[in-house]
Nucleic acid binder design. Structure first.
Lengths: 119, 119
DNA sequence: TTTATTCATTGCAATATTACGATAAATAAA
DNA sequence: TTTATTTATCGTAATATTGCAATGAATAAA
């Protein structure tokens, strides 16, 4: 075992899980934030921003790229990374589906059938 | 190695990463969706909804609980799970921070300094 | 061409995740 | 009390993630 049973879930569930997982590391959050707030998205700048070695950053960039959240363009001997806005908006859309199609029923859940202990 | 360097990132980055990571599996997305759309959040119902064995579901529930996204209340010999709305709104807030404080500069990134190849 | 710069890849060790059978713990039902 | 129901935990196997030194590949600069 050890492999996620992807085929047992919907595409939407898998897609949101994949994108969430890609953001499931503080370094990758930091990378996304850096790319969101700056035009200068040369790989070296990202490496300098993070408290991690260059190969480690490269690996995180690869994961974000695999998830589709970022893309890279060759510029001379450097590589310019940026947010992939198509997937970024898709991610927002998947989250909005979750946030807007349901209404939290705070006081109806977990308490309706409680029998007080000790009575 | 193998352990995330949590102390090198901000609380906000770590919190968003932790919550994102908790949602980084389709089964946990499915659990959250089920809890969002129903009042009946007895653990057994969740197990029946998922294509996974009971111990595996229990483990996913534990991860969501550890991240703070859900909470459980004992009801007789069953346990009623529900969304922890405090953390749920915190998650939404952390995401909104990301979505609203930055503006995608689609056409300014990755193309401004490109020297056409072959010229 | 030679050297420097930039980034990816490889290889490895440590740790974490995913999944489930078996079993334990706790309450409910008979 | 005995049995059933419900959920958590343990143990284990397979796989994935995290991190980095060393190295490779590619372009830039000298």
């Amino acid at each position: 075992m050890g492999a996620t049973k992807t085929d047992q879930f919907t595409n939407r569930q898998n897609e949101l899980a994949t994108l969430s997982k890609a953001l499931g590391h503080p370094a990758r959050i930091a990378i996304i934030e850096f790319l969101l707030k700056t035009d200068a998205c040369i790989c070296g700048d990202i490496v300098n921003q993070l408290p991690l070695a260059q190969p480690t950053v490269s690996q995180h960039l690869k994961e974000l790229k695999t998830a589709g959240l970022i893309k890279g363009t060759i510029e001379g001997n450097a590589i310019c990374y940026c947010i992939n806005d198509t997937i970024w908006y898709k991610y927002r859309g998947l989250l909005n589906f979750l946030f807007e199609n349901y209404e939290l029923k705070n006081n109806k859940c977990c308490y309706k059938n409680i029998k007080p202990k000790g009575l």
